[in-house]
């Protein structure tokens, strides 16, 4: 497995929303989950995670509540709101369109151009 890829700008929010959409997570859990679902291919700077979480909460895409972690510590958990779920769907669709477009652009051959 190579070096984790740099995140493209604007994708962090999408990844967070995706991670939280599976289950309620605390901040550290979000970090682990992104690492896990990307098969370790994507790593995010720990320091940039929290500002993103606070921004998403302010935009009412995430909800928070205090709960107990797996080792019984008090931790803040993030869940997706309805608006967050909609946003995730939109962003995922947009991302997929973009990815397909870029992939086909990169596959293009000279005679077809």
């Amino acid at each position: 497995m190579g070096k984790p890829a740099e995140l493209l700008p604007g994708t962090l929010d999408m990844l967070i929303l995706k991670a939280v959409s599976l289950e309620a997570l605390h901040g550290y859990g979000v970090l682990l989950r992104i690492r896990q679902i990307s098969g370790g291919a994507l790593d995010i700077a720990q320091g940039s995670l929290y500002p993103a979480l606070y921004r998403l909460e302010r935009q009412r895409l995430l909800d928070t509540h205090w709960g107990l972690s797996e080792n019984n510590r008090r931790a803040r958990f993030y869940t997706l709101t309805a608006a967050g779920r909609r946003r995730l769907k939109e962003e995922a669709a947009g991302w997929n369109r973009l990815a397909v477009a870029i992939a086909s652009a990169l596959d293009a051959r000279p005679e077809e151009a």
């Binding site: 901040g27 550290y28 720990q46 935009q59 009412r60 803040r76």
Partner: peptide
């Protein structure tokens, strides 16, 4: 959103700061 943050600034500021500190301490320890 602006009103909410103003409200938070005026009344919930202490709680906000304590929550944020605790959250980050948890992260570091975990």
């Amino acid at each position: 959103a602006a009103l909410r943050s103003a409200w938070r600034f005026l009344v919930g500021r202490d709680r906000f700061e304590r929550g944020m500190a605790e959250e980050m301490r948890f992260h570091l320890e975990a």
